[in-house]
Design a protein around this nucleic acid. Structure first.
Lengths: 169, 169
DNA sequence: CTCAAATCCAACTGTTTTACTTGGTTTTCA
DNA sequence: TGAAAACCAAGTAAAACAGTTGGATTTGAG
């Protein structure tokens, strides 16, 4: 599972659609202005989203895009997978059968982690996100939080979290 | 949180170190051969890991790299953040204060998702990963393969390993 | 003591992906 | 019927990724 700015564009665009559900279809022009990215690049992303059955486009004046499914039935993993190239990151297809000792063992470990991330993102839907769940800065079980919530400590965590977001433009 | 092959290289390399804990330090040459990537590229990745205080290098013959902390105290988020570029290109610095209506709302929603992912990966340590049951299965299988024991028993073990990992996509 | 093994370092090159650009065509509503 | 929108394809520019080259420093092994 790859996670880049491309995936972020796709997810935020889908969130735009989810936020407008029930109203008129959303034009890519609107999204392009909102998110400050090029119209044609958005078109390319939406071509993939459409092929994956996540959005439905209607042409002509008054047209635009709508979600093809209920927002609660669309996971973040689906959206990101739709726009990602399908690259095998392990080289052995994640089957752990490249029979190369140490190398294959770490491949197997990476797939474990990759599966975890994929499962995690499969459990988060667009609907959950737009309903703005009570997420504090970082997950509650995080080590820093466990060590005690001194204000200075918390601030550090906030900065770290923002840095992560900042990396994704 | 950016999640690319670069992050995979870093994580798998760190797993290599974790698997060798207690033994001699691991040379980048060994990792380069195992993972089939260039030595100099690894050096660049490890320069970042070292600056982040995740590994300690010792020079000279018999030298190499060791984990700078206990493997249970090193999270996947730390490792990936260490090798990621750190350029903030957001208009609002990820704080969701760009005050631009729709655009800023989706920024905020993305930030919540990004925080969730960061927290999730902060909760997974190298130690947890190397202790996964599937790892032991694979390690056993690889040992068996090395001994040339291609049997029905071996086949069963392979299937077991695939079952554990086989739920991606 | 010396030499080779290893980290450490910097600047450069090639490759791939990302993001954008251009210039269309089709569809369909107002 | 004309404009608004999706749809399409081929290219360029910029960025990130990955590797290359050519060192220097440190230090254990012989």
């Amino acid at each position: 599972m790859r996670l880049t700015t491309k995936g972020r564009y796709a997810v935020t665009a889908m969130l735009d659609l989810a936020l407008q559900e029930g109203k008129k279809p959303v034009t890519l022009q609107d999204i392009a202005v909102n998110q400050e990215i090029s119209l044609s690049y958005l078109e390319q992303l939406f071509a993939r989203l459409r092929k994956s059955g996540l959005v439905r486009g209607t042409r002509g004046p008054g047209g635009g895009y709508r979600l093809a499914k209920k927002m609660d039935a669309i996971s973040i993993a689906e959206v990101i997978s739709a726009v990602d190239e399908n690259v095998d990151m392990t080289g052995c297809g994640g089957r752990g059968d490249c029979l190369d000792g140490e190398k294959c063992l770490t491949h197997e470990l990476w797939m474990e982690l990759s599966n975890k991330i994929f499962g995690f993102l499969s459990d988060i839907s667009l609907g959950e996100l737009v309903r703005r769940p009570a997420v504090i800065v970082v997950a509650e079980r995080q080590a820093a939080v466990r060590e005690g919530l001194r204000s200075g400590r918390l601030k550090t965590v906030v900065v770290d979290a923002n840095t992560v977001v900042g990396n994704l433009k």
